[in-house]
Design a binder for these strands. Structure first.
Lengths: 151, 151
DNA sequence: GGGACATCGTTAGCACAGCTAACGATCTCG
DNA sequence: CGAGATCGTTAGCTGTGCTAACGATGTCCC
């Protein structure tokens, strides 16, 4: 295969991946709405639930977002009693974000709803296609990880 | 394969796809910023460039967005001279959106930038892996189309 | 010990994207 | 011709992203 063709392939592939990701998220956003949580809040809550207590700055960095943005997201989550702010004992500049029981419960429910839509579509595929899609997803994840490393 | 395992597979796959889509877009957003175009504008522009002249309603539907939202996106694109509004000759309620030469140029430049980011990562893949990723992307697109049909 | 500098989170203010409701213009069909 | 449907826009709300600036706290070095 010529390098020219490979380059064209990469172009088309990147384009389609980008478009597919946009449209996929747009569909799933509807399900997120059902839980009363926007995608950024759900994503941040997920980090807090699975990543244990975390400072606001760490959370912002994990979510690839600036601190002022994360301040507002956390404020929204706190108002719904999904997370709790707690001051650090030793460094009073820090704010540690903890998940509440309600936060954990809502996250699981939202996740299930969101993924159910996709899962039902996946369920209509044949076994071969599921395997191919799994392989593609695995490659995509590796691609993203390698992009992050380069950064 | 038991139906139980298939269900678990579908759920796990859906979860990973969701996560991968979020992270991919977060990375690519940085590059999109360089073109001065937000993701929704870039995506809409892409539809106009490749899908020929299209009405505002069709564009909104293609982008899974309500007409008022698309009105503003198109207004932004028009202000930057990337698209042009034109009235339909036969049905005066319709507004047809055309891409301008500048619109085509900017879209291609953004595409190139995006691909450049992926280039090193894709370059590490073998031809087989590229083919697998293409197949996965194709399946993902079909998945999204089937979700849309259900809706 | 004390002062200069760094770090953390917040506030203020801007732009954009998503929505619903309501409206004017236009088309369609009885 | 007139009633209702359809299309795009406007108005107004919420939420997410940013930068700039600030107060509070930690750190480090003289």
């Amino acid at each position: 295969m010529t390098s020219l063709k490979r380059e064209r392939d990469a172009l088309a592939l990147a384009d389609q991946l980008h478009s597919a990701a946009i449209h996929l998220l747009r569909h799933l956003r509807k399900e997120d709405d059902a839980s009363g949580l926007s995608a950024p809040r759900l994503s941040a809550l997920s980090v807090v639930v699975f990543g244990g207590p975390v400072t606001l700055g760490q959370l912002a960095s994990a979510e690839q977002v600036k601190p002022p943005t994360m301040t507002r997201i956390v404020t929204g989550l706190e108002k719904d009693r999904l997370v709790r702010r707690e001051g650090d004992k030793h460094d009073k500049r820090l704010t540690r974000i903890h998940a509440t029981a309600k936060g954990r419960r809502v996250l699981m429910a939202g996740r299930a709803r969101r993924v159910e839509l996709l899962a039902s579509a996946v369920g209509k595929l044949g076994a071969t296609e599921v395997a191919e899609l799994q392989r593609g997803t695995q490659l995509l994840k590796e691609l993203i990880a390698s992009m992050r490393r380069e950064q």
